[in-house]
Every structure is written in structure tokens, then in C-alpha cells.
Design a protein around this nucleic acid. Structure first.
Lengths: 344, 344
DNA sequence: ACATCATAGTAAATCGATTTACGGTCATTA
DNA sequence: TAATGACCGTAAATCGATTTACTATGATGT
């Protein structure tokens, strides 16, 4: 049990550096900010003084003057959500590139907390906020900003009501890709295992499936469609349901990888081989999709890319002071693996 | 596509409020900080002016003067780790209570990033840092602070080398609880399915098991011990291994809930009923433990409590300017559910 | 030789709060 | 009546940077 009395650390200021380098604080500030008109000789003297004194500029003082903290806020409904982290990584990537930090806040889905976080963030003078949420149809958009007005972008949720950019995946397009691939493989009876109806994504994806089918001249058969929760257990149960019909599907399009995993275990129980007897396509491209047997063909939800776009749009809004209320649909990406194959 | 030109928002300052209330800025500051010697009448006039103008004090300006940002940094190796979020919740809870915010950073396990985050946090003048990591034996502790010296606490990892408080679970004690419970149930051949040897926890837990056994006069039998990864698949495989021995165990102590779930499915395959034919105890108390059939008896890893303690110790260090290098072992908690029962 | 201009550097104001030291009131006490 | 002291309020310095406006110097062009 050692004790450590922290020394009062007389913070090195720009003044100290100036003194040590024999110049004025203004000059030190210039080299800090790469402002022209300081001679190479002076600059190196200042630089030397800086690291001799181990100087680190106070971003607080800087922020006070220039009115920017170089910090973005990111408030999420569910920090533990399976998609959250990937989007955050995208945001952080572009933020870091431009010298911004990201202040993460978890609202645990409570409007109260979200408001409180927003308030604190604004008091801290962050430059902009990303509101990150899973969206459900009928749910009202996140509350308008409580005070002031700083740039905001909606991520993984959207709104028409605010003049704020929204970023969502192109679920429709993703479903088109998955369906088209199964058609290309030669399948004609493609079953669908979908998620719950209170997610807008489920409707978009079903629409993509349906339109692709119809474009190929194949009639839509409601008997091939099932919906449940997003999880494995639903996939398992619904696959059994679909396959025990008189005229069962020859391919399954599962609207989440979890559903697909559940479905695969049902198929295994029915002694159906994937992809020899039946093809299966997932959605999301979760990490585990690649490690299934067989590795799952799936549609990638462009989470990192969405995060990047959110960061870019926000940074742009901060710099230009303008933002538009557009809805950006980021395209999905088809990932071919081994759970599908050309039929004879 | 609506356009929104953000108005330049002339920030309301303490001056404006002072003017509006007909007092000096100093007086406004006093009511803001609940400093005595301002008359009730004046105070209410100031308060009125504040919310008439919708005033929010600039925490930047405040921080510059008082040299405290009321912000804690929390750097984690793995934001997605299954235990991380619970600990964070604990930290945030006590921080919020005392008016502090928590700045979350993910180092993705890279020392480089950790250092970078640390630097940024210090530049932002946060008041203290929590370093949150899963620890493995032989791994060196997180790097010493790069610059300055602000209070630090280690969470879910420990060090003797720095005069910094560490907080870890009492794995030994947890294992004692689990083992004792199985003994109390009447079991005498208790199998162990452990995690990998490069986690210190596995050794502590095995020690707890062994000492409890020996205290009860039961000899330690190495044939009953298995170790693998922390995951379900290991639990499944190792349970089969243990149960196919000539003299199989009559109870299983799995050192993670995932291992226990895997083990239970192996037991199911062997037509052994839990808890009628064999008892099983998990470790961690993950969310899914309660939803198994039967619900899993387990040992709770006190993550939230650990987070709280980390927050308290850090806040304390910030306030007193002193910290000790103690290692705090937070007790586990035994959670009785239905996967164990008294044997005849 | 003189005006012009590019370059280097500085003094001082500023950002928005907090805090110290001090100046009035007014009631109480000697 | 004068001194004391408890209250209430303010002026001004301060935190650590940035930035504007200005000065000085030397080079260039005519």
C-alpha cells in the first residue's frame, strides 16, 4: 500500500514556452497553428522549447477562444446493440482523421436520459451530435434539440420532420441482391423468414424480394413468407414450418443472420443439406456468418460505411454551417459464401 | 430537401444575465454556484433573468478558471466485451450522481490507440481516468501515464507496480461459494470445466474450488478437472469428456455461464436430467443464465458494483489528491436457481 | 534615393466564466 | 455618538490560449 501525493503540477503554458524560446506568446501560437510568417529558425527554437518543457496546449483555453471543441457527441439508444459498435467505428474513423474526438453517450433508450445527455453535451460546447438509434415504424423521431442549435445527424433512423440528414441502410436494395442471387442460382420457390413487422426494414426487404420476383415473372406466393423475432429460435421454428408444407421452398432468404443460423439447424434436423438440397441466404453479415458450416452467403449491412457517412455529413455541416434534410440510403453489399450454389 | 441556415446564435453569457437582472456578473456567478450572501430577492431576479434569456453557463469558460472539467475518462480494451458495459454502467452511475460525465474511449486492445486516447483526454483536462481491461497473467499492466499526473484507477485488471488502486472480482471467493453450494447439495464428485490458463481468474477459481473441497475433507481429483476456451463449444465438448469417464462426476461447476450452457446441451444428449441426475453451476450470471431450461444456478460477477467502486475511488482521489495502490477484490454473489438441488 | 511590399515578430484585446479584495448599508453595542 | 460587524454587492484580476492591428526590417523596383 504505497502512497502517492500528487504534485500540484504547475501546468506549462504558452507563456512559459514563449519565455524559454525568447519570443512572444503570439509567436508560439503561430507555430502551434502553422500560421505563416515565422522564420524556420524561430520555429525550431520554439519547437525545442516546447518539448524541452514538455508542453501540451490546453484545449480548454483554445476552445474558449475559438469556440470549437473539436468534439462530436454520439448518443445511442443501445450501446450494446449488435450493430451499434460498427457504426461507431465508422464515425470515429472519420472524426479522428479530422482531429475530432467522439463523446459517446448511452441513453439506454430512455428519452429522459437522452435529453440530459444532450444538455450536458451542449454545455460542453461540442460541435455537433449524431443520434444513433434502431428505428421502428411509428416511433417518433428523437426529440428536437433542447437548446441552441448545433448540427445534428440521424444515424440508423430517419425523419422527414426535421431539416436534418438521416442515414439508413438500403434495405430494399439489399433484398433485391439476395433475391436476385437466389434466382440466378436457379431457384424458383424462395421462402422468406422475416423479422417483426414493427421494423421498417422488414417491409422494405419484403418489398425488394417481391419486386425482384415479379420482375423475373415469378408470382408472389404468401405461403412462402414467415415472420417472427430476429433471433435464432424464430429461424429454427419458422424454417420447420416452411419446410413441412406440401410444396416446400427450394431456397430460404432469412432477413437476419441469426434467423439463418436457426433455419440451418432446422434444415440439418430435416436431413437437408445446405447448399446441395437447399440454398440459404442471410442478412447483416454478422461476424459469425463466416464461421457457420457451410459459411453463410449473406447481404452485408453497411454499418461502418454508414458511420463514416454520418461523420462526414456532420463534419461538413459543422464546417459549412448548413445542413439539408436529406435521407441517405447506403447500399448493402452481397457476400457470396458457401450456403448457396447454382442448381442443376 | 429543406435548407436550414443556422443562425449565428449569439451565445448568452453571464454578462447578459447580469445586465438583464441589473446586477454584476459576480453576483450572477454567486447564484450559479450557490455562494452565500446574496439576498433572496436578488437571487430570484437573477434566476428569472436566467431562464428568460434561456441562459446556460459555458462549462468551457468555467473549466478554464477552476481547472476541472467534471469529466472522467474511461478507456477500455474492448467496448464490445461481454462484461464491459455492466462495469461502465456502474462507473457512470456514481459519476452522474456527483455531476461528472464519463468520456468513453475504445482502444481496441491496441497500446498505440490507448496512448493516443490518453493524450487527448489529458489535453481535454479530464479529472481522472479509469483503465478497463480484461487481464491475463503475464500481460504487462497498461502503460504508465504519458504526461502529467492525474488520478487513475485500474478496473478489471490490477497492478502492484503503480501506486494506483485496482479493482478485480473476488474469483476465489466466488468459486468457494459455488463449490460449497454443491457440497451442501450433497455432491461429492464435483467436476470442473474451467477457462483458459492465461486468465488469472481460472487459477483463482480452481484454488477456491480445491480449498473448499479439502476443507470438507474431500480429496482433490485431477480427473474431474477440464479446461478449454470460455465458450459454449468447450463446455459441450468437455462435459462429454468428463461424463464418459468410468466414474463420472455427479455435479458440474462451469467457470462461465457459456460453458455451462454448452455442458447442459451435452448432458441433454446423454439423457441426463438437470438437476435431477446431475447438478450444474455456472459463473458470471450473464443475462441468458436465467432463461435456460432449467434456469442456471450461478455465481454473479459483481461487475456493476466494481464499476461503482472504480468511480468512487477515482472521484475520491480527485477530491483528496491522494491515492493508494491497493487491490480491491469485490465479492461475488451466489445466485440460486433451478440447475442444482439437494440430493437424497 | 524613395516609395512599395513582403516578411517577422509583438502588444493587447478577447473568449466566458470565477474569485479576491474591497466598499457600502444598516442594525447592534459600548 | 461612534465603533463594530454581519450582509450584500461590485470592480478587476485571472485562467491559457487566439487574433487583430501594428511596428520594424530588409529587399525590390524605378
Amino acid at each position: 500500500m504505497k502512497y502517492k501525493k500528487r504534485t500540484p503540477v504547475t501546468k506549462i503554458t504558452i507563456q512559459d514556452v514563449a519565455l524559454a524560446a525568447g519570443v512572444s506568446p503570439a509567436t508560439v501560437s503561430k507555430v502551434l497553428n502553422a500560421v505563416p510568417y515565422v522564420s524556420a529558425e524561430t520555429e525550431s527554437r520554439v519547437r525545442a522549447a516546447m518539448d524541452r518543457l514538455n508542453y501540451r496546449p490546453s484545449s480548454i483555453a483554445r476552445s474558449l477562444k475559438i469556440k470549437s471543441t473539436s468534439t462530436l457527441g454520439l448518443i445511442t439508444n443501445d450501446l450494446e446493440g449488435v450493430f451499434t459498435m460498427s457504426m461507431m467505428r465508422g464515425v470515429e474513423e472519420v472524426a479522428t482523421q479530422q482531429g475530432f474526438s467522439v463523446f459517446l453517450c448511452n441513453s439506454y433508450g430512455e428519452a429522459e436520459r437522452e435529453r440530459a445527455h444532450l444538455l450536458v453535451l451542449m454545455d460542453k460546447h461540442i460541435d455537433g451530435v449524431i443520434l444513433l438509434n434502431g428505428f421502428r415504424v411509428g416511433e417518433r423521431p428523437a426529440p428536437a434539440l433542447p437548446v441552441g442549435n448545433i448540427p445534428v445527424v440521424y444515424l440508423f433512423q430517419y425523419t422527414h420532420e426535421l431539416a436534418v440528414p438521416s442515414i439508413i441502410p438500403d434495405d430494399f436494395g439489399g433484398a433485391v441482391m439476395g433475391t436476385q442471387h437466389l434466382l440466378d442460382c436457379g431457384h424458383r420457390r424462395i421462402g422468406v423468414i422475416n423479422g417483426p413487422a414493427n421494423y421498417e426494414a422488414t417491409h422494405e426487404r419484403l418489398k425488394g424480394y417481391r419486386q425482384t420476383l415479379e420482375a423475373a415473372g415469378i408470382p408472389f406466393d404468401p405461403a412462402l413468407i414467415r415472420a417472427g423475432k430476429w433471433y435464432e429460435s424464430s429461424g429454427y421454428a419458422l424454417a420447420h414450418e416452411l419446410m413441412s408444407q406440401p410444396n416446400p421452398p427450394d431456397a430460404l432468404f432469412c432477413m437476419s443472420d441469426s434467423l439463418a443460423v436457426g433455419a440451418m439447424s432446422a434444415l440439418r434436423e430435416r436431413r437437408l443439406r445446405v447448399p446441395d438440397d437447399i440454398s440459404i441466404v442471410g442478412f447483416d453479415n454478422r461476424a459469425f456468418a463466416a464461421h457457420q458450416t457451410p459459411p453463410l452467403t449473406t447481404v452485408l449491412l453497411p454499418l461502418v460505411e454508414m458511420g463514416r457517412l454520418a461523420g462526414e455529413l456532420l463534419l461538413q455541416a459543422i464546417q459549412t454551417g448548413q445542413q439539408t434534410g436529406e435521407i441517405h440510403r447506403v447500399p448493402c453489399q452481397f457476400i457470396q459464401r458457401a450456403s448457396t450454389r447454382l442448381t442443376a
